[in-house]
């Protein structure tokens, strides 16, 4: 139990996937304009990441290692992730057309979200067991969602703030992201 709580705290706060490991920056800046769509994106990524963590672990342990074809890790994992994203896209399109519209191109782009592939590969590299892998994937996804929603909340306020013209839009967002990243460094001493 202690191990699992350490994995969770480490993944969500200390080694936050976006703010400390700098993975998944594209949706972090792309879908963080509104809190509602940020939450939706976070949920979609959480789903994909958790299941990708699960399935890739099985693929690694029961397909790649027994057949001694570990060098196919990247392409096999991408195959898994791409299929999962397709699946999520169908479900979201059916269940919530509004969310589907709000996420737009960023939904299929989860495929190329390096956070998903990154976490899957990190699970293998850290030689996690199945439960640890799932927990780590889920916690990383929560960390991603946390960073995304925090960023969206700040950016919603930035819309009304009096910002110098040259910093409006993306520049101030990048500065904000950097400050958030520095703030998250403060969690380093937690464990």
């Amino acid at each position: 139990m202690r191990d699992i709580s350490i994995i969770v705290i480490s993944a969500v706060l200390i080694n936050n996937i976006v703010l400390s490991q700098f993975l998944g920056i594209c949706p972090f800046l792309g879908v963080s304009k509104k809190v509602s769509s940020a939450v939706g994106m976070g949920l979609a990524v959480t789903f994909v990441l958790t299941f990708a963590g699960m399935i890739t672990w099985f693929v690694q342990q029961f397909v790649l290692i027994p057949l001694e074809i570990e060098y196919l890790q990247t392409i096999a994992f991408i195959l898994v992730i791409a299929s999962l994203v397709q699946f999520v896209e169908m479900v979201v399109k059916k269940t919530s057309p509004d969310l589907y519209k709000a996420l737009g191109v960023y939904l299929p782009l989860i495929t190329t979200n390096c956070a998903v592939l990154g976490v899957s590969i990190l699970n293998i590299q850290k030689t996690y067991g199945f439960l640890d892998s799932v927990v780590n994937s889920f916690a990383n996804a929560i960390g991603f969602t946390l960073a995304l929603v925090l960023m969206a909340g700040i950016r919603e306020r930035l819309e009304d703030a009096d910002i110098p013209a040259s910093l409006k839009g993306l520049p101030i967002s990048l500065i904000t992201a950097a400050l958030m990243s520095i703030a998250f460094m403060g969690f380093t001493g937690l464990i």
Binding site: L64, I69, V80, S83
Partner: peptide, 18 residues
Amino acid sequence: FYAVISLAVMGAVFGVIL
């Protein structure tokens, strides 16, 4: 041989699910 087969099988399985 295994590389080709395993990827093909995985692709086919995911394809059917999708």
